[in-house]
Design a protein around this nucleic acid. Structure first.
Lengths: 246, 246
DNA sequence: GCAAAAGTGTTGGAAATACACCCATGT
DNA sequence: ACATGGGTGTATTTCCAACACTTTTGC
């Protein structure tokens, strides 16, 4: 292994300069951030992809990513990528995990930190000017450039876990939404069907939905009530979770 | 932002060489791995710490970490650190998340990938030769070098979540263990008290524990039966989880 | 015989599930 | 009038929490 390792083995107390030179010597790893941007439209969970800008992967789709600047926070890099591509900030954005396989990038050692984000496609629609950028059905993606399929799968799994314990779904919806739309989000993300009555009962019992006294417009059937999610009430009531379940 | 960003904005198709030179230019971030090694002893959850080898933090305890070699996988780096410090491999080891604050390391920009590991202190006891290495009660740690307290907190939270859905606890115990020991592990990790009868009922109902027909020895009270965990049976029965709960 | 922990069942309440009918709107 | 989804209540089952006494061993 690298000489640094042996240096530490010797357990000498090191000066800052010692460490700084170590960092320079070993500094042959590049760091990037890749964003998995989920959206919801036409009752389907979507992910935003772009054509790879690398010849080797020409024609393949890839996640939105960029190298991290040495003076840039990781979270800032993820937010920057999101902002550049969608014009949005102040959205839900969460680190997934880091992918560092030796062979994941053809240009050399590039370790990437994956983030996922949830955005409301309605708010974002006008801002995409890039026609190499498209929404794809999450369940209709067979292959991506690099190891991006693995990153997507991992992010999707994390989304599925988190959405069951945190009110993420609302980030995918407009401020006002119907119960049907809400249920569609859950059914799409979890890839399951739920009983409509039990679903409503559950959410009404949680008591975080506010009936805003408006109805759906222009639907070809009886219009439903519109609600919004009361985040501040939720923040106060967050619950603990103790149990063993596997 | 960095010129790389503008380059990508222009959406030109890039050659491998273009990217390679970008990687070199921007290559001013060092990557490390820090391991949070949990153990269990004297009915307490412990974490393995070492004295910082950096003058600035002299006297402070820190996690076990090292820079990642450009030719080394992240998981391998974590395993290497574990092996070097404890002599153990083939143990449960999992990535937590990546910490990349600009100011987290005095030597410059060092982004670190945190891993946690669970080891059985009994197996490991003989192999520590380094007297600057000690087990500390997890709940008795006020301050650590670098941002290692945050990394520890984050890892501990992840451990608490995972232990409730996966059979991690058995990695902290000897192959043969009593129900009391098992319950102690859960109570320590989750920092809670559980009803003994309900605890047993739950585990016996899962049907992954095998009564090996032996009893505890040398205990100053009625000895309990010893069990082991049937991993292969567990692997077959893993369950899915669908619900909304927040 | 005393201290200490092992071993064991039942019951009540809460939560999740399954399930069917009438209502309001657009066409 | 009919098609579409909105809106509602109840019965059943399942899971979890609470709870106390007898047994075995070491000292």
């Amino acid at each position: 292994m690298a000489s640094i390792v042996k240096g530490k083995e010797a357990k000498s107390i090191k000066s800052l300069l010692d460490i700084q030179s170590e960092v320079k010597v070993i500094n042959r790893i590049a760091l990037s951030v890749d964003c998995v941007i989920f959206g919801f439209d036409e009752n389907k969970l979507k992910v935003l992809l772009i054509r790879s800008d690398l010849k080797k992967f020409q024609g393949k789709w890839s996640l939105l990513g960029d190298l991290v600047d040495p003076k840039e926070e990781l979270d800032s890099a993820a937010n920057r990528i999101l902002k550049q591509r969608t014009g949005l900030d102040d959205v839900y954005l969460e680190q997934v995990r880091t992918f560092g396989c030796l062979e994941r990038h053809p240009a050399g050692r590039v370790v990437t930190v994956a983030y996922y984000s949830l955005i409301n496609i309605q708010h974002h629609k006008l801002k995409i000017l890039d026609n190499e950028l498209h929404w794809h059905d999450v369940n209709d993606i067979a292959e991506l450039a690099f190891d991006h399929k693995r990153i997507l799968d991992s992010s999707y799994e994390q989304l599925q876990r988190r959405v069951q314990e945190h009110p993420l779904a609302f980030s995918l919806l407009p401020k006002k939404f119907s119960m049907r739309e809400l249920q569609n989000v859950y059914e799409s993300i979890l890839d399951t069907k739920m009983d409509r009555r039990n679903f409503r009962k559950k959410f009404f019992a949680m008591d975080f939905l506010v009936d805003i006294g408006q109805m759906e417009q222009d639907v070809p059937h009886r219009p439903g009530k519109l609600y919004h999610f009361n985040y501040s009430k939720y923040e106060k009531k967050k619950k603990k979770w103790v149990g063993i379940d596997f």
